[in-house]
Write a protein that binds this DNA or RNA. Structure first.
Lengths: 339, 339
DNA sequence: TTGTATGCGTTATCAT
DNA sequence: ATGATAACGCATACAA
């Protein structure tokens, strides 16, 4: 094992002070060109590596940010993280990942441990079970910038990057109406999360605009699993009045719904149009490709990163709260296109 | 902004030395129970948080590990990372993620920056374009334990966790043979990566065992994209002798192959059986579910983490090189089941 | 332009 | 059992 080389090792070798070495390495303007070259050469030869830990301790900046998500291996979240990483890397930041498993206690714990790891910022998408925002305030108290993406709570001083879920719900529903559907069922996610409320609100608004009434029984709560979509359809199709469209807040339930509808011999999209949400990879590849709403996750991550960078570059006491709302993109495919 | 509370703040408040505070907080055996309680109470009241940066600098352990993958938002990789995170978190480690974009230069750079971030270990899956292992040796030189997962290179002293790709290729091919297929095409990935070599070798071995000959033209190089599968099939079906099975080293090309075969009116699995690789989420959900090989990525991540933990718990100079080989699981579905 | 000295927050060594 | 002090590696205020 090679011993770690420090600026003191370099300073001894070239007979200059460690301060000079430090400055030369950081390209300090008041160090002569000649000295800089000597130092750099020595550093290279000795295979010097700056210890970012020491630098971090000194400067108070760890150049690490934390990202908290329910699960990292969900297409949407991992794509957002990808965006964050790509945007932040050129600025010297590293991304630390934390999973909550959709559990509030884990979320609180993750914030706590991140906080004493001295991260410079936190990106997070809250878990389904998160009700209060105590833990968020802790981060704010310590002056750690926090950016919500996708799933957020309203907390003063916290920026967020989301898609316009209301609009997404509206557009998706309107699209179904335009296809001639009049009895549109909605498979809705947990209303504890804003995103699902908004999608639902958009669904309602589209009906209103087009003078259609919603049968309250057509709104079914689901949990993003295929099985949930299957049972939702079973339940819906037991009713006297049957839907002629399904707008699901999740692609997985949309898939389950489609499977069940096919099983029951219902023709898609002729008899029933189906739309999902999230533009999961599989939606495109199905034999009956599923219409969905693209949330542009990589972009979302990149913009969240930009919001963070903007925030830390601003003055210390300046509390900017930036709310970025991205426009969702409808991906219309065979499951909803009667054309 | 609340000021950061240090052990000195606590020591001032309770009129004890910082050393005592530190010891009490770390549950040092020689500190009296009474003192410990006083200290802990004060710490709680003052909302003290240990600064892990300082601790890291002092101890030389950052309690951070780096994970280097081509892209974080690929189902396989994000699942491995999930496994690593879940296994390491109880031990107080955080996971820093790095993407190479399948680019060798990025890979080298990522290792470099991780190294001076003072991580305690590196997990990596090499990129397709990685030919040499200079950068790996750098990590070893600095005595940073490195664990390969899935895509590895042979480097003395480096542990690895992979699946038995040879066996996977063998079993998949044998399964196709058992279905009565005799002219099995293989869509093979970049042979620069061991995993693809092994899958190919297994494919060859299965033929040998069953006394079948391979038409060399049946082995087509692909790049894991759907389009690649489509063009491979087009090319294969231009030949006089046509395959009666396709074993693809990637699920995406298997999907492309299936799409193209259907387009050409070829019946699956009656005329042609198809197998993919990776057990991507979509394979299960297709109308014609695609047979594939499950690499148990979350498990792979967990075991890689265990190998790391084992390594650092061992004596300093002990260079253990552990090679874990997981058993792949065939997921047989309609695309290859004639029964 | 360069050097000296100090501190970032901990922990460990040596006293007491 | 507890306190004083040094050290981890770096960056900077102050001196020269």
């Amino acid at each position: 094992m090679k011993e770690k080389v420090t600026i003191y090792d370099i300073s001894r070798k070239i007979k200059m002070s460690a301060a000079t070495v430090s400055r030369a390495l950081n390209d300090h303007p008041k160090i002569s060109q000649k000295t800089k070259e000597i130092v750099r050469k020595a550093a290279r030869e000795m295979n010097y590596k700056q210890n970012r830990l020491a630098q971090a301790l000194k400067s108070g900046q760890s150049k690490n940010v934390g990202v908290i998500v329910p699960y990292i291996n969900r297409s949407f979240f991992s794509s957002v993280i990808r965006g964050i990483e790509e945007e932040l890397k050129p600025n010297g930041y590293h991304v630390i990942i934390c999973q909550t498993h959709e559990n509030y206690e884990n979320e609180v714990e993750q914030i706590d441990t991140l906080l004493n790891t001295q991260i410079d910022g936190i990106f997070m998408s809250i878990s389904k079970t998160t009700k209060d925002t105590e833990h968020i305030r802790k981060a704010l108290d310590e002056n750690v910038p926090l950016v919500f993406f996708d799933r957020k709570k309203e907390v003063p001083g916290v920026s967020s990057v989301v898609i316009d879920d209301y609009k997404a719900g509206f557009l998706a529903t309107e699209h179904l109406i335009e296809q001639g559907c009049k009895r549109i069922a909605h498979l809705s996610g947990d209303l504890n999360l804003d995103i699902y409320c908004e999608r639902y609100n958009g669904y309602v608004a589209a009906h209103k605009k087009h003078g259609l009434k919603i049968n309250p029984k057509f709104v079914v709560k689901i949990n993003s699993k295929i099985e949930s979509g299957i049972s939702a359809v079973k339940k819906l199709w037991k009713m006297d009045e049957k839907p002629d469209a399904v707008f699901s807040a999740s692609d997985y339930t949309a898939l389950g719904a489609i499977q069940q509808l096919k099983k029951m011999g219902v023709k898609i999209p002729e008899e029933v149009c189906v739309m999902g949400f999230s533009n999961e990879i599989f939606t495109k590849y199905m034999e009956l490709p599923i219409s969905s709403v693209d949330q542009t996750p990589v972009t979302m991550g990149k913009i969240a990163a930009q919001v963070f960078l903007e925030k830390i570059s601003g003055s210390e006491n300046l509390k900017i709260e930036k709310k970025v709302v991205l426009t969702p993109k409808l991906q219309l495919r065979d499951s909803s296109l009667r054309s």
